[in-house]
């Protein structure tokens, strides 16, 4: 983790500090643990859940947060089925939060907590150094005090904690990159091996030009893609390897994993670190733990331990 983030520090010229919980402190406790860092001046700070993805509208969030002058702003997103989530209800005609309704049985609203916040350091006075839930213990108090606002997210949002959602979230993020014409993407124009777009290839990856990649593919650093390979809606993590004429769809290939020649991997297959799928196999919806070698087909979804 440290090694990866050192690179990120360098790449983006930022400083990353680790605050490590010796025991799990819930979603609010860690803020109290980092009180000295977060509260060293009056400037607001962001809090992000790691397992969500969206277009991250930080600039607008800061501007909005400063404009209302209260302690906190929660990024909210609209969902189709609010009954599965905690719904946020605002005061009429205001962004101020009135109340939280957990898994509502009748329709009270369709905006839910997107897991991204911006707080003024004053919030730290509300949090003790003990396991605490920010959603259940801190936010209701702040709402009651009229110190908590919502800021509506424009565009996509996805909880990417599950492999299925991770792939959906990846597609949404790639679409976002296409929309903003990001130069991180490789576009179909002028690249005959790209099909349908939304393809992100690390500059250190090697892709044979006879392969057909896309749509919605991420190829990580050092990954190798052989001749006649077909990739769709999948993520190849660092140094993953897909050998000639293999076919991968809706799957996550872990670090240093290998898919053999003429093998077909699909349906939310997840390969752990250093997994090998031998040649000519069919792998359908397998979750394969690290360092395993698969030498016969897996025709229906299975966990391989």
């Amino acid at each position: 983790m440290v090694k990866v983030l050192e690179k990120v520090e360098e790449q983006y010229n930022i400083k990353i500090t680790f605050s490590v919980e010796s025991e799990p402190l819930g979603t609010a406790g860690p803020l109290a643990l980092a009180r000295d860092i977060l509260g060293k001046d009056d400037s607001p700070f962001f809090v992000l859940n790691a397992d969500v993805t969206c277009a991250y509208p930080f600039k607008q969030l800061i501007e909005f947060h400063k404009s209302h002058g209260n302690e906190g702003t929660i990024l909210v997103t609209k969902v189709a089925e609010p009954s599965k989530y905690g719904v946020i209800v605002s005061q009429p005609g205001s962004t101020k939060i009135d109340r939280f309704v957990e898994k509502p049985q009748t329709f009270v609203g369709n905006r839910i907590n997107a897991g991204l916040y911006i707080f003024t350091p004053k919030i730290l006075d509300r949090i003790e150094l003990r396991p605490t839930s920010i959603e259940q213990e801190i936010f209701p108090e702040m709402a009651k005090a009229g110190e908590l606002h919502t800021f509506e997210l424009d565009g996509f949002w996805m909880d990417v904690g599950q492999p299925k959602d991770y792939l959906s979230g990846t597609c949404l993020y790639l679409t976002h990159l296409t929309t903003i014409k990001s130069n991180l993407l490789t576009y179909p124009e002028g690249n005959s091996y790209i099909y349908g777009g939304n393809v992100l290839i690390d500059p250190t990856a090697e892709v044979d030009p006879s392969a057909l990649i896309g749509p919605n593919v991420v190829i990580g650093p050092g990954a190798k893609v052989g001749k006649g390979v077909r990739l769709q809606r999948c993520v190849l993590l660092a140094n993953a390897r897909v050998k000639d004429h293999a076919w991968v769809q809706s799957s996550i290939l872990g670090w240093n994993s290998t898919v053999g020649k003429w093998s077909r991997v699909e349906n939310i297959t997840v390969l752990g670190d250093d997994v090998t799928i031998k040649d000519e196999l069919y792998v359908n919806g397998a979750s394969v733990l690290p360092h395993k070698s698969i030498s016969s087909s897996i025709p229906s979804p299975t966990i391989v331990m």
Binding site: S210, G228, R230, H245, K261, E280
Partner: peptide, 24 residues
Amino acid sequence: GAGVRVKESIILDNVTVDKSAIVS
């Protein structure tokens, strides 16, 4: 076609198998 894999199979008259397909 190119990069096609065929094993333990019978392929009868005038069939076409396009690139990187597998028949087993």
